[in-house]
Nucleic acid binder design. Structure first.
Length: 876
RNA sequence: GGGCGGUUAGCUCAGCUGGCUAGAGCGCCUCGUUUACACCGAGGAGGCCGGGGGUUCGAGCCCCUCACCGCCCACCA
C-alpha cells in the first residue's frame, strides 16, 4: 500500500508505467502460449503521418480490445506497423526537394528512392512513438512495414501468382490521371466534388457545308480531340444525319455522326461530341464504333502538337478559354450557361483528375469480389454495425478493374521485364538478361497493404508456415473508420479469400469520424482540429481515451470538445480520491472473498447488487463494441453509486466502534473497488493500474492489472436490497430537498417523526439515515398527526414530520408546496384518464394496469398530505 | 441521379423487441471550506421527443408523408 497524492497527476505516472509494462514484457505475445488466440493488426498509418485525433480513437479502441482480451486470459497480440504510402510519401520528399531548389528528375531515381528511405528512417516512426503516449499496448517486437523486405517478397509473390492466373493484366485503357502527381490513380483515389462550371453549346458544320449540328460540353478543350458525334438511334431529329461527316473547325479533318444507345436524347441537343481519349463514356463508344482515338494531352495535361499550332502547349484550363473564344470568333458558339457538375480530384493533392489513355497494369477484380461477397453473405466476416454490410456488398457488386500501376518511384517496382522484341516476362526473380528492362512503374500502395493481415505474420508465399499464422490468422477483429472500407477492407477480404480461402478477420468494427462539438468535421484549415498529444499533455492519456470512447458507438461519428476531455480527467480524479479514501480506511484489507452473507449490511448487499448488474451490462457492451455504454455504465456506477452513496453510507461503520462491522465494510469496499478497476482497466489503463497496485500487495511484488483476471459474474444480484435501499435514498433525498428549499444550513440538525410502511427497515438504518440526511434523531409513529407548526415531507414509502419552529421561511415553503400540489394533481388527472378508459383496463397487461392503480393510490395520498401541509402552513 | 443516417433540454447525445412520471455529460441558477475529492458536495430551473396523418388501450419508439441537415456512392455531355 502506498499513500496517494491529493490529486491525480497523469503526467507523473504515465511514462513510468508504460516503461514498466514494456520492461515486464506484457505487450509481447508468443504464438505458442496458452489461451484462446486473439489478434489484431493495426491499420498501418502512413509513415508520413503524425497522430491525429482519428488515430487516437481508432487505436484507442484496438487497445481496449486487446487489453480486455489479455485479462480474459486469451493469447492476445496487437501487431503494429506502418504503410510506405507511395504517393503521399513521394509528395513529402518532393516538396523537400522543391524547397531545396531541385527535383526528383534532377536527382535521379536511385538517389531519390535512397533519400526517401533515409527520410523514413528519420521521421517514419513518429506516429508509432506517439501511439505509445496513448498507452497503446502493441507488441513492438513485431513491428512491420509494408515496404520492408519480408512484405516486399510477399508483394512480388502475389503479383506473379495473380499474373499467372490471368487476374493481373497489362492494358491500354482510359484511366484517371493526376497531372500534378503525374501518375495513374485507381477509381477510389478520385474524389468527386460538385463544381460550378460552364456548359458550352456550339455547332459543328457539316463537311459538305450544308448546315450544322449542335453539341454541348463542360470541357471545351476536349473538342480538339473529337472524332465523332453520337446521337440516339431512335432520335428522329437525327435519323437522317447518321453517317454524315462534320468538319473540325480548327483542324484539317472530318468525322462522322454515329448512333449509340448511350446518348440521352433529353439532354441538351441530344447530340454528343465524342472524345475517346479523354472521357470514359466516349472511349466506350469509340470501341463500339471503331472510332479514331486522338490523345491531345501530355502527362502534365498540356495540349500537344496534335491539336495544331494555335492551341499546342496550352494548359488544359487555358485551352478551355481559348477554345471558347475561338469558337465564338468562328461564329460557332451557340451559348454558355452555368452548370454544376461533379469533377474528380486527386485524393492526395486535390488536382483535377484527367481521364487519360495509357498503358497500365490492372487487377481483374470480378472473381475476387465474388468470393469476398460470398464470405460476407455467409457471415464468415461480420460488420459492426451490421448496417455496413449491405453497403459493402453493393459496392463489391459494382467494382471495376483495379488500376494498380503508378508512375512514381516510391513503392514496390512491378516485377515485369520487357525484352528487346517487346516480350514481357513477369517473374519472382529479377530478369537479368541483355537488353531486358524492368517496368518503370510501382504498385499502388493498397496492393501491399491488402496483404497486411498475413504478411505481418510472416507470410511470403504459399510455403510460409509460421507459428504466428497458425495461431493468429485469421485475425479476430479489424478496427477502422467506415471511410476506408472500400480502399482497404474490401481488398484484404478479396485477396485473403483468393489466396488462402480464408477471411482476413472475423469482425470488421467500423467506428465513426471524430468531429467537433457541433458535429463539424475536424480539419486543420477550419481551425477546429484537436491535437490528441495536446490532450494527453493536459489531461492525460486515460482522459483522452475515455472522452473519445464515451461518445463512440459503432458506425456513428464521434463529437469531441476539449471540455469533455477535461470532464474525463475529473472522472479519473474522482476515482483517485475514492481510492485515496479507501486506502486510508482499508487498513491493509486486500480484495479477497466477500464476508459471509450474515455479515453484510443493506448497503453492502445494495452495492454488490449494483456492481453485478453494472458488470453484466458493461461486459455485454464490451462484447458489442458499444463503447459509450461501457463508459456510461462504469462512470455512473463509480460516481453516482459507489462514491455518492456507498462510500457515504459505509462511513458509519468505518468510523464506528464495532470492529467486526468495520472489517466487513472494508472487505466489501475492497472487492467493489477491485472489480471496478478491472472493468475500467481496458479503457483507462494508467490510473486503474496505479490505484490497483496501491490497493493490492501482490506476493510477486510486480503484478500488473494488465494481466489480472477479468471479473466473472457474481451471485450477488439482490432485488430486495435494491428496493430497500431505494427507500432510504428517497427519504434522504427528500429531506435534503426540504433542507435546501427552506434554506436550512447543513450544520443544522433536526429530528423527524416518521410514519412508514417500512418502519422496521428505517429503524434499523437510522444511524445511516441520520448521517446522510443530517438528522438529529428519528422517531416513529403509526400515523402523522397534522399539527400547526409542522411540515410533512413525503417520500416513496411514507412521510415524516418536521417541527418548523425556528427552521423555515413560511412564505417560500408555501409557494413550493402549492406548485408541487398542482403538479401532482395534473398527473393524477392523467392517470385517472387512463384508468377510466375501458379498453386500457381490458387490454393492457394486468401488471401495467396494476402499476397505474398503485400510482393513483400514491398520488391521492400525496395530494392529501400536500393539502394538509398547505393548510397547516397557512394556519401559522 | 442512387443509397444510408439524422432531427429528443442552451450544446453534444442516451433512450434495446411500443408501457416515460423522457435521461446523461457540459453549461446555467441557489446553497455549502461535513475529517476521499472545490478536478468537490447538496439542491434546482430547463423538453407540444422536426411538421402533418395513421396503427394501437397506449407512440420518442411502429407505418405513411412532408420539411430540413449530414454522409457515402455515381463515366450524362
Amino acid at each position: 500500500m502506498t499513500e496517494l497524492s491529493k490529486a491525480y497527476d497523469p503526467a507523473a505516472v504515465e511514462s513510468d508505467l508504460y516503461a514498466d509494462w514494456i520492461a515486464a514484457g506484457l505487450f509481447h505475445a508468443d504464438p505458442d502460449a496458452d489461451g484462446e488466440p486473439f489478434s489484431i493488426v493495426i491499420p498501418p498509418p502512413n509513415v508520413t503521418g503524425s497522430l491525429h485525433i482519428g488515430h487516437a480513437l481508432d487505436n484507442g479502441i484496438q487497445d481496449v480490445l486487446v487489453r480486455r482480451a489479455r485479462m480474459q486470459g486469451r493469447n492476445a497480440v496487437w501487431i503494429p506497423g506502418t504503410d510506405h504510402a507511395g504517393i503521399a510519401t513521394q509528395n513529402v520528399v518532393e516538396k523537400q526537394l522543391a524547397a531545396a531548389g531541385t527535383d526528383r528528375h534532377e536527382l535521379g531515381r536511385e538517389a531519390f528512392v535512397e533519400r526517401t528511405w533515409q527520410w523514413r528512417e528519420e521521421s517514419g516512426g513518429t506516429i508509432l512513438r506517439q501511439l505509445r503516449r496513448l498507452g497503446a499496448s502493441c507488441d513492438w517486437e513485431r513491428e512491420a512495414f509494408t515496404f520492408d523486405e519480408s512484405r516486399s517478397n510477399a508483394v512480388r509473390e502475389v503479383f506473379v501468382t495473380l499474373y499467372e492466373q490471368g487476374l493481373i493484366y497489362r492494358g491500354n485503357r482510359l484511366i484517371n490521371w493526376c497531372p500534378r502527381c503525374r501518375t495513374a490513380l485507381s477509381d477510389i483515389e478520385v474524389e468527386h466534388t460538385d463544381t460550378q462550371g460552364e456548359l458550352l453549346r456550339f455547332r459543328y458544320e457539316f463537311a459538305d457545308g450544308d448546315g450544322s449540328i449542335e453539341v454541348a460540353t463542360t470541357r471545351a478543350e476536349t473538342m480538339l480531340g473529337d472524332t465523332a458525334i453520337a446521337v440516339h438511334p431512335d432520335d428522329e431529329r437525327y435519323t437522317d444525319l447518321v453517317g454524315r461527316e462534320v468538319r473540325h473547325p480548327f483542324q484539317d479533318r472530318t468525322f462522322a455522326i454515329v448512333a449509340d444507345d448511350y446518348v440521352d436524347p433529353e439532354f441538351g441537343s441530344g447530340a454528343v461530341k465524342i472524345t475517346p481519349a479523354h472521357d470514359p463514356n466516349d472511349y466506350a463508344i469509340a470501341q463500339r464504333h471503331d472510332l479514331a482515338v486522338i490523345d491531345i494531352m501530355d502527362d502534365e495535361a498540356r495540349l500537344t502538337d496534335v491539336v495544331g499550332e494555335r492551341f499546342a502547349g496550352l494548359d488544359r484550363f487555358e485551352a478551355r478559354r481559348a477554345v471558347r473564344d475561338a469558337l465564338d470568333e468562328a461564329g460557332l458558339l451557340v451559348g454558355v450557361e452555368a452548370h454544376e457538375h461533379a469533377v474528380g480530384h486527386c485524393e492526395r493533392c486535390k488536382t483535377v483528375v484527367e481521364p487519360r489513355l495509357s498503358d497500365q497494369w490492372f487487377v481483374s477484380v470480378r472473381p475476387l469480389a465474388e468470393k469476398a461477397a460470398q464470405a460476407v453473405r455467409d457471415g464468415r466476416t461480420v460488420f459492426v454495425p451490421e448496417s455496413r454490410t449491405k453497403l459493402f456488398l453493393e459496392w463489391l457488386d459494382n467494382l471495376h478493374d483495379w488500376c494498380i500501376s503508378r508512375q512514381i518511384w516510391w513503392g514496390h517496382r512491378i516485377p515485369a521485364w520487357y525484352g528487346p522484341d517487346g516480350e514481357i516476362e513477369v517473374s519472382r526473380t529479377d530478369v537479368d538478361r541483355e537488353g531486358w528492362v524492368q517496368d518503370e512503374d510501382v504498385l499502388d500502395t493498397w496492393f501491399s497493404s491488402q496483404l497486411w493481415p498475413f504478411t505481418t505474420m510472416g507470410w511470403e508465399g504459399p510455403d510460409s508456415d509460421t507459428p504466428e499464422l497458425a495461431t493468429w490468422f485469421p485475425t479476430s477483429v479489424l478496427v477502422t473508420g467506415y471511410d476506408i472500407n472500400t480502399f482497404w477492407v474490401s481488398r484484404m477480404l478479396m485477396i485473403s479469400l483468393w489466396l488462402h480461402d480464408e477471411v482476413p478477420f472475423r469482425v470488421v468494427h467500423n467506428h465513426g469520424l471524430v468531429r467537433d462539438e457541433f458535429g463539424k468535421k475536424m480539419s486543420k484549415s477550419f481551425g477546429n482540429s484537436i491535437d490528441p498529444l495536446d490532450l494527453i499533455d493536459k489531461y492525460g492519456a486515460d482522459a483522452t481515451r475515455f472522452a473519445l470512447l464515451r461518445s463512440a458507438a459503432p458506425g456513428v461519428d464521434v463529437p469531441l470538445a476539449e471540455e469533455w476531455v477535461e470532464g474525463a480527467k475529473r472522472f479519473a480524479n474522482k476515482l483517485w480520491n475514492v481510492a485515496a479514501f479507501a486506502l486510508q480506511r482499508l487498513e491493509g484489507t486486500e480484495p479477497g472473498d466477500l464476508p459471509d452473507a450474515d455479515a453484510l449490511t443493506l448497503e453492502d448487499r445494495w452495492v454488490l447488487s449494483r456492481l453485478e448488474s453494472m458488470r453484466a451490462e458493461v461486459d455485454a457492451a464490451y462484447d458489442g463494441y458499444e463503447w459509450s455504454v461501457v463508459c456510461r455504465g462504469l462512470y455512473h456506477f463509480a460516481w453516482d453509486e459507489l462514491a455518492d452513496w456507498y462510500l457515504e453510507a459505509v462511513k458509519v461503520r468505518l468510523y464506528g466502534d464495532d470492529p467486526e462491522a468495520a472489517a466487513a465494510a472494508r472487505a466489501v469496499l475492497a472487492v467493489v473497488l477491485d472489480d471496478l478497476l478491472r472493468l475500467l482497466a481496458p479503457v483507462m489503463p494508467f490510473v486503474t493500474e496505479v490505484l490497483w497496485r496501491a490497493l493490492t500487495t501482490s506476493p510477486g511484488g510486480r503484478a500488473s492489472l494488465m494481466v489480472a483476471d477479468w471479473p466473472q459474474a457474481r451471485d450477488t444480484l439482490d432485488a430486495g436490497a435494491e428496493r430497500d435501499f431505494a427507500v432510504l435514498q428517497d427519504l434522504v433525498t427528500e429531506v435534503r430537498k426540504f433542507r435546501s428549499q427552506n434554506d436550512i444550513a447543513p450544520k443544522v440538525r433536526f429530528g423527524i417523526t416518521v410514519a412508514s410502511t417500512h418502519r422496521d427497515l428505517l429503524q434499523a438504518q437510522a444511524p445511516m439515515l441520520e448521517a446522510l440526511a443530517g438528522l438529529s434523531e428519528l422517531a416513529f409513529v403509526d400515523a402523522i398527526e397534522d399539527r400547526p407548526g409542522t411540515s410533512t415531507i413525503v417520500f416513496g414509502g411514507g412521510s415524516c414530520q418536521v417541527e418548523l419552529a425556528g427552521l423555515i421561511d413560511v412564505e417560500a415553503e408555501l409557494a413550493r408546496l402549492t406548485k408541487e400540489l398542482a403538479k401532482a394533481e395534473g398527473e393524477l388527472q392523467r392517470v385517472e384518464g387512463k384508468l377510466a378508459n375501458g379498453s386500457f383496463v381490458e387490454r393492457a397487461p394486468a401488471e401495467v394496469v396494476e402499476r397505474e392503480r398503485a400510482r393513483r393510490g400514491e398520488l391521492l395520498e400525496q395530494i392529501s398530505q400536500l393539502r394538509e401541509q398547505v393548510d397547516a402552513l397557512e394556519a401559522l
